[in-house]
Design a protein around this nucleic acid. Structure first.
Lengths: 142, 142
DNA sequence: TAATTAAATTGTAATCATTACAAAATTAAA
DNA sequence: TTTAATTTTGTAATGATTACAATTTAATTA
């Protein structure tokens, strides 16, 4: 869970991104808080460390990260986008009770469907929705 | 492609929805135009037939349809929601060149992943993104 | 090192899909 | 018909995201 500045800088430079305080802090936050945060989550959490931080900078940085493949933007039937530092292929489960987003691995083969022969497939989203075990155990609904 | 008013009314009553002119027109539009339209698409297209139509009514109706299982709301990495009259399980491909959304069938088995044992799964979205064959053939990019 | 240029960051205002809400219109029930 | 319930409408809010110009910071050059 600990990342040196050197490691963070390398992470960015590996993705062709020049380092800056904001970029390093946002990257560090994403690496240490794998909760698929929203831009607002990130903004609120970094305000202590960077009092002059603006929301525009958070969006700018996240857009840059998405362009360079550092994060994947998640669109989970909600108005706010979420950002995932884990860009390897995997599925997401959104609990509509607690709002948490869980990762899961895709075991089955996602080969090109018949109907999409000849299509270029650049990206795939596998999103599940429901109630997580934690909320079920607590008997929480909606 | 033709639907009698009787059929449309039955379709609604089968989903526990009382008929009204707007509801029947929107349902008819969705059944005849299986292009995963946005609320605005529907609004613009019905304005000829219902000059007093308001956008709020379109949203109200689509929300009702979604609640009653008449349509599925699609969240395809774009700001506008789309509405699919086909509520049977299938995947969607969004072409980022022409913007069209294609259906495809899911052949592989979507069983509960290990990590989601004990979770209630109520809904699944399988979304592919890329360039469709049509746009590829025309050499169109971005 | 200072001067110049480029890049990053900020603040404010716009955008735009969606929602809230109350008034008006329509339909159903008494 | 009268009354009550439902549907529809118009307007104004909401809220995430973006546009954009100004400011700050960092990098480069003289």
């Amino acid at each position: 869970m600990e990342h040196t500045v050197k490691q963070l800088k390398e992470y960015l430079s590996n993705h062709d991104i020049k380092p800056s305080t904001i970029r390093l802090k946002i990257l560090e936050y994403l690496l240490n808080n794998r909760i698929h945060p929203t831009a607002d989550d990130i903004y609120k959490n970094l305000l202590d460390q960077i009092p002059t931080l603006s929301k525009t900078s958070v969006y700018n940085t996240l857009d840059l990260f998405a362009d360079k493949g550092v994060v994947k933007v998640l669109s989970l039937n909600e108005k706010e986008a979420r950002y995932d530092i884990n860009t390897r292929f995997h599925g997401h489960f959104k609990c509509h009770v607690c709002g948490r987003v869980y990762d899961f691995s895709i075991s089955y083969d996602i080969s090109t469907p018949q109907e999409l022969k000849g299509f270029d497939i650049n990206d795939i989203d596998i999103n599940f929705y429901g109630i997580c075990q934690n909320c079920k155990n607590q008997g929480r609904r909606i």
